[in-house]
């Protein structure tokens, strides 16, 4: 039997209770954007749930921006997606067991990362057909298990949407602290292993010859990727983690080939995407996952277009340089 205390402790229930009240607030028409962004922002920050959502989102954006940049560099998006999908049954099981979803995400994602890392995950490109079949099988089974746990929990199927596509409602103070602690671990560990990780990522043979423990660094990164995926899942849901893990990092990679600048840019874009996404979600009735993903897409497409324009301009300059007199034909 589930006691009342259990229900209170369950993160999912907490989310939903808060969400019910907040959804009423958001749809009652008492919250609407005016023409003054300053007063709009103050109106938004008057609600504690919104302050917590911004805190959680900002913390997550920093972690996702950093880890995402390395994930793109290493071509490990597939691993990132697998970890995210495994987080879903973890979170659903945690809610079913009367724990906060946070612990389910961190537990499942980190455990899966350690498992993949210890079996000697090879980088994509070297990925064998059997391996990708195995990962596909695990992904499908993980989603099915998550569905089972949500069904076992009975009722509250609303939380299914939140777990898969994200929710910014009902982030508790302790959840913010947990996110902050995990992001802190990511930043510190990345600070320590950052250079050898970069070396091993772009040039593994020479890095090994120079004494970089490439296998250890890769496994450590995979665990960090698991932690980051767990963080992002709590904002965007399991299926939209790439909105924060891929889009800002890919944007940064398109804009600059400088590592330090790229990392900073990746974090900046992730923060921007989260803030705009949360702001839009606050002033409308549509889900935050959609707004965050769409903002990320706009950034990515913008950078891709700018990159293409720059390449074309450079090619044109080169053509002009190699063909000194183009006027003969046109005049």
């Amino acid at each position: 039997m589930i006691t009342g205390l259990h229900l209170l402790a369950a993160g999912g229930v907490h989310d939903l209770l808060a969400a019910g009240g907040v959804r009423d607030l958001l749809t009652s028409g008492s919250v609407h954007a005016g023409w003054n962004p300053w007063s709009d922002m103050r109106q938004m920050l008057a609600y504690h749930f919104m302050v917590n959502a911004l805190r959680a989102g900002s913390i997550t954006a920093v972690a996702a921006g950093l880890i995402g940049w390395f994930m793109i560099l290493r071509g490990q998006s597939f691993a990132g997606h697998t970890l995210a999908v495994v987080g879903f049954p973890g979170a659903a099981a945690a809610i079913w067991a009367g724990l906060a979803a946070t612990w389910g995400y961190f537990g499942a994602c980190t455990a899966a990362a350690i498992l993949i890392g210890s079996t000697g995950y090879r980088r994509p490109g070297g990925e064998a057909a059997g391996e990708s079949a195995l990962i596909g099988t695990v992904q499908a089974f993980a989603l099915a298990c998550g569905l089972l746990f949500v069904a076992l929990y009975k009722g509250f199927l609303n939380s299914l949407t939140g777990l898969l596509f994200g929710s910014f409602l009902g982030v508790t103070d302790s959840q913010v602290l947990a996110l902050l602690a995990m992001a802190g671990i990511i930043v510190v560990v990345l600070g320590v292993i950052g250079r050898p990780l970069l070396f091993a990522s772009v040039d593994p043979d020479v890095a090994r010859a120079r004494g970089v423990p490439a296998q250890f660094v890769s496994a450590a990164f995979l665990v960090l990727l698991g932690v980051a995926t767990a963080e992002v899942s709590q904002i965007t849901g399991s299926l939209l983690v790439f909105a924060l893990l891929v889009m800002p990092a890919a944007t940064a990679h398109r804009i600059t080939p400088r590592p330090v600048l790229g990392l900073a840019l990746s974090v900046a874009v992730a923060l921007l995407v989260v803030w705009i996404g949360l702001g839009l979600a606050f002033y409308s009735v549509y889900p935050v996952g959609f707004y965050i993903t769409t903002t990320g897409l706009v950034c990515y497409l913008g950078s891709a277009a700018a990159r293409r324009a720059a390449t074309r301009r450079r090619a044109a300059t080169r053509r002009r340089a190699s063909r000194p007199d183009p006027s003969g034909l046109s005049s």
Partner: peptide
Amino acid sequence: LGLDGDRWGL
């Protein structure tokens, strides 16, 4: 990276 890519820390 060939110069100091194997060093730990910032």
